[in-house]
Amino acid sequence: MSWDNELLERAHKIIELYPQKRSALGPLLYLAQEKDGFISDDSIVEISNLVDITEVQVKSVSSFYSMYKEEQTGTYLLSVCKSISCEINDSRSVINSVKEFTGLENYETDQDKLFTFEEVECIGACGGAPAVQVNYETVEGLTPEKTIEMCEWLKNDKPEIIVADQLQNKFGGTKSFDWAIEDNTGSAYTVPGFQNIGTAKEKDN
């Protein structure tokens, strides 16, 4: 079977949170994505057994949501917002700079599996438009130049944990609001870093 005991143990813990098994489906799909960088057919089979539904039911759900990826993602998922507040604040130039730096078109992943680029809808950072997420960690008030700097940094430093506050301090500009609280938690995969699915990571300073 494709999931090891450690992963299965996490899966069972998640299932226990809910009155009905199937509710754990979403979080379990994140585990699958953490494992492989996408939702593999093997993981679908595994999950279908865990929550007692058919494989195609799992697939039906996973393919509905944008954050579950059908193809393998790179280490860093660059999600650039193109919705209205960002659009009118020139998100196009941020998109173009990412495209230029990575050579990727929308939804593509480079050969080294370093970057995946996607244009996304509003990520709730409209006051800090244009905004970007790296592995679901938000940076606000980007410029094309800062965007390229950020990509370069990712490429050279290859940080293991992406932390929104660190990105923002290094590369960000105008924010949607004062973030105020110091924070060094983040995510290490192309899934949101979050305690309940065991993906929240703390960065040592």
Binding site: Q20, K21, S23, G26, V61, F64, F194
Partner: peptide, 27 residues
């Protein structure tokens, strides 16, 4: 209280879609 994470679907803001999503279904 259980904190549950969505997965990228605006429509899940609509309350009944949200409930479907929380039940592990399509939103």
């Amino acid at each position: 209280i259980v904190v549950h994470l969505g997965a990228g679907a605006y429509i899940c803001g609509e309350e009944t879609a949200l409930l479907n999503s929380l039940e592990g279904k399509r939103g």
